[in-house]
Amino acid sequence: MAGQLTRYQEQPRGILGRVKGAMQSWTLKLGGNELEQRLNRIAPPQNEYGVDPFGFDLDFSKAAIAPVLWLYKKYFRVETHGIEKIPAGRVLLIANHSGQLPLDGAMIAMAMLCEADPPRVVRSMVEKWVPTLPFVSTILARAGQVVGTPENCRRLLAAGEAIQVFPEGVRGLNKTWEHRYQLQEFGLGFMRLALETNTPIVPVAVVGAEEQAPNLYDLKPLAKLIGFPSFPVTPTGLPIPLPTKYRVFFGEPMRFAGDANGEDAELQRKVRQVKDAIQSMLRTGVAQRQHVFW
């Protein structure tokens, strides 16, 4: 009986189990001993079925991150700067969003896992329609990603988690080539939550994602037809990014005080400070790099 009850903690059977095992070894091959130790240091609260209350499954995630880790190490060869500035406990990572595909978010998450000390699991706030997508919704949930409602964010911050927010949303992600490295309009929601929960904000600048898929022209009528936020025309075709070199810059933590339900103008002023911090890191990052691909 005992054997039967504990079975699900062990490797699942069948093809899926074998795929999971193979992916996990790939993860460990890419990350080496160091990553194995880091993963062992992450101890999310989990029940006898291996998940935390939000559905984050560390064992599953070890397999699911393999391709992302490959992009991080081999394809984009991500370089991080200033990751030691991440404070312990709850934190909001506010970053620029670019590159047509939200790979910048995945790369920041990998940096937090592979470089930060102690290793952190980033919980991103995913779009509210993501739960309607089969497979994607399940994979993201098991990997610790959560639907971006203010209540979910509040709860995770209260639990001391690191949350990643792209205040530009698709405005940043799908902007066209001539607007590269120009921050689009920021939403105010993250600032409300930061004030309400007294959470430090770390501005993050990602350099290199803009060039992975330059949006030469936005086919708006086609996007509208298929219900996408935009339809970018890129040199390689949409799903394939160019192997640019990613540089991720973490800024000094910023702390704000004030009324979370205050006037928008007041919030806007604070958001402006975060935006300026990111924009200035972007400017230096772009100016200092020698090459887009190296």
Partner: peptide, 9 residues
């Protein structure tokens, strides 16, 4: 609902 909070109060 797809956009439910994970823990509805």
């Amino acid at each position: 609902h797809p956009d439910n909070d994970n823990f509805l109060t």
